[in-house]
Amino acid sequence: MYCLVKFAPLFVAVAVCNGWLFGDFVGKQKELDEISLWPLPQKFQSSAIAFKLSPTRFQIVQAKQSSAGPSCGILENAFRRYSEYVFGDLKKPEKSRKKVYDSDLVELQVWVTSADPECDDFPSLQTDESYELSVDEPSAVLKAANVWGALRGLETFSQLVYEDDYAINNINKTDISDFPRFAHRGILLDSSRHFLLHGVAGSV
């Protein structure tokens, strides 16, 4: 018995190193770390080919054939918001001088395909929020039926950008096709039940 207790830590250490214990956990954790998109798209294919994104040269623009023009405030504001989100304040001249490098990917073209881009409407149960995103040099293309699908695609694009060991922004060659699993997403706050539960708990 004494020998078992004495050598138990050694056995556990050897088992962990060889993957006898926690093997499935480590494997699944590695798989989750490699897929950092949330929520995970319906169809997602990425390669090891990486493209550099320069804060001073990369831009998000409306595609020429897009039905949503410069007057679409929802998209124009989103372009600025996501550009700042991806690069932070590196687009400022005093900051960008510290990170000057060529950009393999020069732009993300956002292409809204429907005749009514829904720039002036709120999303409804009938709104098509699907999108397709293709990341390849020199331009990435985000294709969506309306602005609400385009917003979902912009969020996904922003999550694909990462910094390498040299603090250079990169994005891998990627193809994504995505749509919401449910037509309606909501949340219910039952304040009366919350109050009653806490009231009872507090009085006990």
Rank of each mutant, 00 (worst) to 15 (best):
D116A: 08
V5S: 11
E163Y: 01
T127C: 03
Q45I: 11
P9T: 13
A48L: 14
C119I: 12
F122R: 05
N77G: 08
S158Y: 00
A167W: 11
F122C: 04
N172Y: 01
N146K: 12
A150L: 03
Y166C: 14
A15S: 06
V26K: 07
V112W: 02
G149Y: 06
W148Y: 04
R80E: 15
A63C: 03
S96T: 11
E84T: 08
W148R: 08
F22M: 13
F51D: 00
A167L: 15
A150T: 04
A50D: 01
S139D: 03
S54N: 13
E132W: 08
D102Q: 14
T127I: 11
I187T: 06
D136N: 15
G149P: 00
T156Q: 11
V5K: 11
S139R: 15
D24C: 08
P41V: 05
F7A: 09
Q42M: 15
P70K: 07
V135F: 01
K52C: 15
L10W: 04
F25V: 09
L108M: 09
K43F: 05
G19Y: 04
G88K: 07
D164W: 08
S46G: 09
F157D: 06
D120H: 02
E31F: 11
E76C: 12
E107T: 10
D136K: 08
N172L: 05
L196M: 02
E155I: 09
A183Q: 03
V147P: 03
N146W: 01
C17L: 08
Q109Y: 01
A150Q: 15
H194M: 02
V147C: 06
L32D: 13
K95G: 02
D33W: 09
D128S: 03
K30S: 15
S114P: 05
D164I: 15
E132V: 08
D128R: 07
E34R: 15
L90K: 07
E34P: 12
Y101L: 10
F179P: 02
D175P: 06
Q62M: 11
P117M: 04
D104W: 03
R97L: 07
A15P: 04
L105R: 03
G73I: 15
A50I: 00
S103H: 06
G69L: 07
L40Q: 05
F58E: 12
K98E: 12
V5L: 10
V5R: 15
S71H: 05
G27A: 14
H198Q: 01
V141Q: 03
R57V: 07
E118Y: 02
F157A: 05
A145H: 02
S66P: 01
V204A: 10
G23A: 07
Y2T: 13
S36V: 14
A144G: 07
N169G: 11
R80D: 06
K98L: 15
W20I: 11
C3N: 13
H198A: 00
S67P: 05
